[in-house]
Amino acid sequence: MPNLRLLSLLSLAVSANLSAADQLTVISYGGASKAAQVTAFYRPFEASTGKKLIAGEWNGEMAKLKAMVLTNSVSWDVLDIEDNDLSRGCEEGLFEELDYDRLQIKEPLVAGAKSECGVAIFVWSNVLAYNADKLATAPTGWKDFWDLKKFPGKRSLRKSARGSLEFALMADGVPPSEVYQVLSTPAGVDRAFAKLDEIKPSIQWWEAGAQPPQYLIAGDVVMSSAYNGRIHAAKTSGANLKIVWNGNLYQFDTWAIPKGTPNLDSAYEFISFTMRPEQQKLYTEQMAYGPANTAAVGMLNKDLASELPTAPENMKNALQMDVAFWTDHGEALEERFIAWSSRR
Rank of each mutant, 00 (worst) to 15 (best):
K154N: 14
A210D: 12
P175V: 00
S160M: 13
W326I: 08
K134Q: 15
F273E: 01
E97F: 03
L86T: 09
S225E: 14
A161L: 05
E207M: 14
E107K: 07
L53A: 11
V297W: 05
W142I: 06
F193D: 07
G173W: 02
A113D: 11
T49M: 10
R343P: 06
L24C: 04
E116R: 15
S177Y: 10
K159F: 09
E307C: 10
T254S: 13
G93I: 04
A233I: 08
K106F: 06
S341A: 15
F145P: 09
A239Q: 02
E178W: 06
S177P: 06
I243S: 04
W255I: 11
L308P: 02
V38I: 12
G298K: 04
R191M: 08
V74H: 05
A47S: 11
G141N: 03
G153Q: 00
I338Y: 06
P176A: 12
G93M: 03
Y42Q: 10
L169R: 08
K195P: 07
K52C: 05
E97H: 10
S75A: 14
W340L: 01
D303C: 07
P312A: 04
D328E: 15
D172W: 03
E107N: 01
L282S: 14
F337L: 01
K281C: 08
K235D: 09
D85Y: 02
R344M: 11
K242N: 05
K200C: 07
S19L: 14
R155Q: 02
Q204N: 11
A67I: 04
F270T: 04
S8G: 15
L4T: 14
M170R: 12
T294S: 15
I199Q: 00
A187T: 11
Y100C: 10
R230K: 13
P312Y: 09
K235Y: 06
Y42T: 13
F122Q: 11
K154E: 09
I338T: 02
I203Q: 05
A36C: 00
P175Y: 05
E61P: 13
K259M: 14
S184M: 04
L241Q: 03
M62A: 14
G141C: 07
V179E: 02
N131K: 07
R343E: 07
A239L: 05
I338W: 07
F193P: 08
G93T: 10
T71C: 01
E82A: 14
F270Y: 06
I121V: 13
I271K: 10
P175Q: 00
T284K: 02
P312T: 01
M68C: 11
K195L: 11
L165A: 05
L53V: 15
F167L: 12
E331W: 00
Q214N: 07
M62V: 15
V74I: 02
H329G: 03
S224V: 12
T25C: 04
